[in-house]
Design a binder for these strands. Sequence first.
DNA 1: TAGGCCATCTGGTCCT
DNA 2: AGGACCAGATGGCCTA
Length: 206
Amino acid sequence: MEDILFDFDHDGSTDFAFWGQMDQNFQFQSQLDTFLSDCTAATGQLSPWSSFGCQSMFPDAQLTFTDLDVQSPGASVIYAEGESPCVDESLDVTKHRARRIVSHQPYKVQRHAANIRERKRMLSINSAFEELRCHVPTFPYEKRLSKIDTLRLAIAYIALLREILMSGCDPKSYVDECMKNGYKNQTNAIWNTSDLTARLSWIKWD
DNA sequence: TAGGCCATCTGGTCCT
DNA sequence: AGGACCAGATGGCCTA
């Protein structure tokens, strides 16, 4: 489980923070869309996201309207020029806090949003890798290919398929021939050709 | 325990 | 201006 923190500054005067325990296996994809759209829709009022969406995403989460530096774990506070932490409990404290937070909250909000977009982007890249893994030949007992191995094997596989096409031979007999005699047109092959042809031998060609 | 792989955060740059 | 893309840094997990 990982501690996470979301903080917001909607209209420059209101500030609230959210944090809770997040399961590492949390399925982001669908939730991210909701999160981003709710962030966009958020106004000075308590948003649907804060009261409902968060709780559905993070069952044991806490939602508070509070001063970030007091309650949020690990949150850093940037003080405005000439300011220092104040212990006065007057109304000025509220203004002081608001001004202090305003100075850095917009950046943090943008950064959180950018982080989420980046995570979403990486998810789409990873799903593409998963799809690619399904299209490259692997041994039944082989462990999951890494990203770099997936790319290299895919390159070698495409090259070999091109060779098969150019040769006009029966694919299976071409692979058998490669197994026996080695792959003749191997150039700059990062992926070991015998590995590739051995993988291809597992393919049911008919 | 070192090295490989991966997810995430972050700041910079480019593009729309 | 905001989002997409990218690469570097960092830390966690797993395996030899």
